[in-house]
Design a protein around this nucleic acid. Structure first.
Lengths: 346, 346
DNA sequence: CTGAAAGCGCTAACAA
DNA sequence: TTGTTAGCGCTTTCAG
């Protein structure tokens, strides 16, 4: 319709170019760009026409410099390809977009230094806030390095409570899991997946809930029913559980630290000729795709990922809005999803 | 050691503050920040001391405005929690970090408009380049909306070749898959997972390779051996395959469109009392966590995700460096990973 | 080898 | 309701 190459050819079109074309000031253009209410209709039309003609789009970077707001959030997690984190990232991404943010994903890749970098404001000036699930750093250390950027932590919270946290009640969830299994007639319930040197608090909490429930029910247990592994990989799980079986450890139910170990359990039990759930009930944790797609479909403890995402964003927006009080905790709901790997013995 | 609150209290410390403290110009500070070679040692030390004392860190946004480079890349994919994309995102993230970029993940969530937004420079000025795996848009449409931001496409490339592409050779991979199965004594090989209304080209290419190999081997086949589904979900797969079995379709091997359908196959075959791989070989596609963790472990066609990531970044860096030629294609390698679901009939 | 100053493109306070 | 203008913090010629 008109000359697209007028003005500074080869350059991006700027607010000023639009203003010039429309014969108005930059402020007026800015007003219509921002849908500022008090702009006369014909002014708005004229400016919009210029914008369309030139194909103007604001330079986000410049806007940021001027406003001091980046509109971006960082999500720092160990590995994006671990199903749980991938699913969480999706929810957080959705929730963030809903609130007008974009998210940059930071993989710490099991590197303690990478985690520290996140906390030491590596993101400073890049993002408005950070959602961080640490694997190595504890609350103490995070408190010490306490960054200037608003921060919300995911996962377990030790003391002191200097930062906001969102988590599920691991103890209660484990307790309920054991109660469910007990209610279905299981009597020798093992906990599978204490990883040697596990830096996370979660596993301990889960084990605690498991033990509490057993104790409360007056069911006898023993240390051999807590099955330890050398690492987080599936092969570690397979090796550990096979060894336990070979050593004569017997159980009719398995509460697994996560879905991955549950998958390992399915493998080992299959090889051992044990039926699931006929001989052994298997319960996973995290309710990931692994659980939904396996055969038999895995029952799993499902942390409310949407709720976690929503709560994290709420807390973060508070902080970004200036809230500067003490660290708050939010407990997201959880639910046990029963699929095919749990049930009464047959 | 010294007064941290000097100057503009409560404000972030700026380059100028450092310059003032060190008694030098901003340029000099900038020089040492950037490790510019020609700075005298004592000057460097003096400035560094000031930087440390003030805890100065450059404002990335300001830097961006000045340089025009953001140091960020966008990765636009349908869903981050689909195992294949999660694993790809991890590789791309790693490769990007290696090259000095951060990546912002854009989920298009199966929304054609969201895809269009990506292409219409929604990211303009936000990122230096975009890596995009479309699910709905075809090459034509992308060419039409051709953005100003450097772009590399992942997945199939139709004509015209206006943009850079990285893909694997789906036809060849499917052919090899069939040849492998044939070599193991399978004779009735089905293709499982033609999704009605599938917008992607990949499935067609895979089917094509499947048919080519069968034809070349002179093995008779039939339309009933191409099993169609109503959607991409596992339930769609389960329903379709069950129906095929009920309808009397028989096969001794299944080449699946992706690992997810392979998981569906494992479920259905298990229920039907068919042994894998004794009665039926099952081959997945994408080599995701699903394949590695299932029981039996799923054999799968593995696209070289690291190679895809590397090639995509290479092409993108070229574009960002100013290359403006015709669209280029790169074929990433693939390999068939044999686990437990393929083998000779027994 | 270092300093001064002019932008980068947009926002927002202040005027008109 | 619209225009003017001074920053936001850093980079980068161009002098010195």
């Amino acid at each position: 319709m008109s000359d697209m190459s007028s003005g500074r050819p080869g350059q991006r079109v700027r607010l000023e170019d639009v203003a010039k074309l429309a014969g108005v000031s930059m402020k007026t253009v800015s007003n219509v760009v921002h849908d500022y209410p008090h702009v006369s209709v014909k002014m708005r039309e004229r400016v919009q026409a210029a914008i369309d003609q030139l194909g103007y789009r604001p330079n986000l970077t410049a806007r940021r410099l001027a406003t001091g707001r980046t509109g971006m959030l960082a999500l720092a997690i160990p590995e994006i390809d671990q199903p749980y984190f991938a699913e969480l990232a999706r929810r957080i991404g959705e929730e963030a977009v809903r609130r007008g943010y974009r998210v940059i994903v930071e993989q710490t890749l099991n590197d303690a230094d990478a985690e520290r970098a996140v906390i030491r404001d590596r993101e400073e000036g890049l993002v408005d806030g950070v959602i961080f699930q640490p694997a190595y750093m504890d609350t103490m250390e995070i408190a010490r390095l306490r960054p200037g950027t608003p921060l919300v932590l995911l996962g377990e919270a030790g003391r002191p409570l200097t930062a906001d946290h969102v988590m599920i009640d691991n103890v209660a969830a484990a307790r309920e899991a054991v109660e469910l299994l007990l209610g279905q007639g299981r009597t020798r319930i093992a906990f599978f997946g204490m990883v040697h040197g596990d830096p996370t608090e979660s596993t301990h909490l889960r084990l605690l809930g498991y033990q509490e429930a057993l104790l409360a029910a007056g069911v006898r247990t023993g240390p051999e029913l807590v099955i330890e592994t050398d690492g987080f990989a599936i092969d570690d799980g397979v090796a550990a559980l096979s060894a336990a079986l070979d050593a004569g450890v017997r159980f009719d139910a398995l509460v697994c630290r996560d879905d991955l170990f549950a998958m390992a359990a399915l493998k080992v039990l299959d090889r051992a000729g044990l039926r699931v759930p006929g001989d052994v009930s298997v319960l996973g944790w995290d309710d990931t795709a692994l659980a939904r797609y396996s055969t038999p479909a895995l029952s799993s403890i499902s942390p409310g990922k949407e709720a976690i995402a929503r709560m994290a964003l709420e807390l973060l927006e508070d902080r970004m809005a200036g809230y500067d009080g003490v660290g708050r905790h939010r407990i997201a709901p959880h639910v046990i999803i029963e699929r095919e790997t749990t049930g009464h013995p047959t």
